[in-house]
Amino acid sequence: MEKKTRRPARGTRKRDVPLSEAGIYSAALRLIDADGVEALTMRKLATELDANPMSLYHHVANKEAVTRGVTRMVGAQFRTATPEDAPWQERLRLLAADLRSLAHRHPKLMAYSFSRQPDFLHSDDPFWIALTESVEAAGVPRPEVSKTAALLAAVVIGVLAAELNGSLRRWSALTPGRPDGRADGAGDAAPESADGAPDGPDLDHMFRLMTDTLITGLENRPAGEGVGRDAGL
């Protein structure tokens, strides 16, 4: 009887393609998209790559380094096709919409990055570069551009984080209060019914409303007024 060749255990057989940082980040992104950052481990990542767990450490230091690398890889995918001669208002709308699209493509990663990675944005990030250019085009003095852009980014990212974790949907269902402390109407809608309508709140409309509100604030900003202590904030 012919002796059968035993197949090596998964994670121990030789890989046809050498490990690389890019390959590790791509595999990690697949796992994060499926189960979230918290469920990611170096052992699971090695299994996904069909590699020995110890071999990963020749390319990445630890899980934190992996998540940061994945975040930068996804952030580099941000590409807005905003014409340079378009009005700054339209450029800001497209920037915000593109960031939202990216967040919806990788919601688990982006929710984690928004709340756990303060350096999610950096000076050479495509979104940040385009945002500061748009803010400067709005007439904000150059010394105030970064602070103004930081405030805009904080609002947009805050709204996206609330949308991804479900808070925005829940908050939009709350019944307006009254000065006497009583709820106006029959009370808050049930959590599962969002705003009481079968389909819940129109989050697309709410995001556009947020963007338009930010743009209106910049449009009505007094000429020459800074952002921060000198402006009375």
Rank of each mutant, 00 (worst) to 15 (best):
M1F: 13
E2I: 14
K3E: 14
R10P: 14
D16M: 00
P18H: 04
L19M: 04
Y25K: 02
A28P: 10
R30A: 08
G36H: 09
V37E: 00
V37G: 02
V37C: 02
E38A: 14
A39R: 07
A39P: 12
T41G: 06
E48V: 02
E48P: 08
D50G: 15
N52I: 06
P53N: 00
M54D: 09
L56T: 10
L56Q: 05
Y57Q: 07
Y57C: 09
V60G: 05
A65K: 09
T67C: 09
R68D: 11
V70K: 02
V70F: 01
V70H: 05
T71H: 10
A81M: 09
P83G: 06
D85W: 07
A86R: 01
E90I: 08
L92G: 10
L94Y: 01
A96N: 00
A97Q: 06
R100Y: 05
R105S: 15
H106F: 09
P107Y: 02
M110A: 01
A111N: 14
Y112E: 09
S113C: 11
R116G: 12
Q117S: 09
P118N: 15
L121N: 10
H122A: 13
I129L: 01
A130N: 03
E133C: 04
E133M: 02
A138C: 01
P141V: 08
E144F: 00
S146Q: 14
S146V: 09
K147F: 03
T148E: 09
T148L: 05
A149K: 11
L152H: 07
A154R: 13
V156H: 05
I157D: 04
G158R: 03
G158I: 11
L164W: 11
N165G: 03
N165A: 09
S167W: 13
R169D: 13
S172Y: 08
A173G: 15
R178C: 12
D180M: 06
A183H: 05
G185L: 05
A186S: 15
A189H: 15
S193L: 15
D195K: 03
D199C: 14
D199H: 15
P201C: 14
L203Y: 01
H205K: 12
M206T: 10
M206W: 03
F207S: 10
L209Y: 12
G217L: 03
P222S: 01
G224V: 00
E225V: 05
G226W: 01
G226H: 00
V227T: 01
G228V: 06
G228E: 04
